[in-house]
Amino acid sequence: MLEIKNLHVKLEDEDKAILKGLTLTVPKGEVHAIMGPNGSGKSTLAYVLAGREGYEITDGDILWNGESIIEMEPDERAAKGVFLAFQYPMEIPGVAGLTFLRTAANAVRKRRDMAELSTPEFLKVVKEKAAKLNIDFEMLKRPVNVGFSGGEKKRSEILQMAMLEPSLCVLDETDSGLDIDALKVVSDGVNALRSPDRAMLVITHYQRLLNHIVPDKVHVLAHGRIQRTGGKELALELETSGYADYTGKAA
């Protein structure tokens, strides 16, 4: 279970508070959506969960399976099962996708006290999972994300997610830059990973992604706090009314 308790976050370099008392709980087996206007702190929440530098937690805590993770390095959190699908995945020139996947999968497996995958085992698993995500195996021989289209980058993120078998998946604006066909493929990939052992947090600006990944709960984030929580119908309501109700309100 993910428990975010009264989380206050500011930028390290400037005196600017972004999250101001965010509280949220996502039990295992559930998919929660975070929706909100631009600048509401959605991406900050994703980065802080994954442990990116540059943010200072001034108050509150984040517990994953009852354990505070806010002092952990990003790789320690990854070993604990935290996975972030990036809005803008980074390019790594000269490093083939397969090399990256294998290095990451084995790094994580080792820290989880699991046997490392041998080359044949690894290739078998990758081929299976790539096929499901409609990823051409040849694409994995190219350097990570270099020259990838928006759709290729996002499918590659979901393949990494499938390979690392996380227990907490955070998807940051996964629908941005996707056409409708790619959106379907990516959503199917995410849905295939839904499981009673897994909690998912889907961060999005638009409702359309939630037609494909149907959430158990929808939270509206604005001014650094959760302003409202509802079922999947809340997303439809926001689609018609927009975020106007929330943007004007002071925190």
């Binding site: 442990g51 790789d75 959190r77 990036f86 995945p89 980074m90 990256f100 790094a107 994580v108």
Partner: peptide, 14 residues
């Protein structure tokens, strides 16, 4: 830092 963070998020140490 973004490139390192990306790799670390995937489980690699610095």
């Amino acid at each position: 830092d973004d490139m390192l963070f990306y790799c670390q998020q995937r489980g690699l140490s610095e």
